[in-house]
């Protein structure tokens, strides 16, 4: 599983951090989301998919495999 995060789209709602705090974080300087783990293990797929679904800016994409 590979995660792609579009920082340009991010609006800093923090939904991804709430859904998967071990995969996403927000930068202190500007509040924009950052990836802590670009290739999280399969056991995180549920949380990561929730994050992608909740992201109001639809800035998260997941590539399977």
């Amino acid at each position: 599983m590979k995660i792609l995060l579009d920082e340009e789209k991010c609006v800093g709602a923090g939904q991804c951090v709430l859904a998967a705090g071990d995969v996403f974080d927000q930068r202190d300087s500007d509040g924009i989301a950052v990836l802590l783990d670009e290739h999280p293990g399969q056991e995180r797929s549920g949380a990561v998919e929730t994050a992608a679904q909740l992201c109001p800016a639809q800035a998260i994409r997941i590539e399977k495999g």
Partner: peptide, 16 residues
Amino acid sequence: HAPARRAVISEFTIRR
């Protein structure tokens, strides 16, 4: 909108 919002996001992060 984006630059205006970006200017204040950091005040409302989860950590903050």
